[in-house]
Computed example of a mutant assay.
Amino acid sequence: MHISKNRDAILARIRRIAGQVGAVERAVQSDAGCAETLHLVAAVRGAVAGLMDELVADHLQAHVAAPGLSDAERNAAAEELVMLLRRHVR
């Protein structure tokens, strides 16, 4: 799997996101102000979007643009990505 070459960096990003989600939970539990909580949620959203961008780029490079792939492999990977992106942007 192509993610394995970047596994440590991706896992580090996911752990940071988990920490950010924890901060949102703590803010809600402690009755933090709305603006503060919204800023925390916006940071989580941005971090998840950045992770998504990285994974999409990796997918494109490994499964669509890589040399040696058959047309069927490229088409299947592209269709999979289109379906995923449609769910993501809803």
Rank of each mutant, 00 (worst) to 15 (best):
A47D: 05
A27Y: 10
D53E: 14
L85K: 06
A76T: 13
L81W: 02
C34A: 09
H88I: 11
L38N: 06
A78P: 08
L40P: 08
A65T: 04
R45H: 13
Q61C: 09
A65E: 12
L11N: 09
R13F: 02
V24P: 00
A49D: 14
E80P: 01
D71T: 09
A62T: 13
V56C: 14
H63V: 07
V64F: 11
A66S: 11
A23C: 03
D71I: 13
I14R: 04
A23N: 14
L84H: 05
G22A: 14
V41R: 00
G33V: 05
D71L: 03
L85M: 14
A47I: 03
V82I: 12
H63I: 02
I14P: 00
V21E: 07
H59P: 10
G68R: 05
S30I: 07
A43C: 07
G50S: 13
S70T: 15
Q61F: 11
S70F: 01
L69C: 04
R86Y: 12
G33L: 07
A65N: 13
H88D: 00
V82L: 15
E80M: 05
A49C: 07
L38H: 08
R26I: 00
N75I: 06
V21S: 01
G19P: 03
G50N: 11
V48A: 13
A72S: 10
L85R: 05
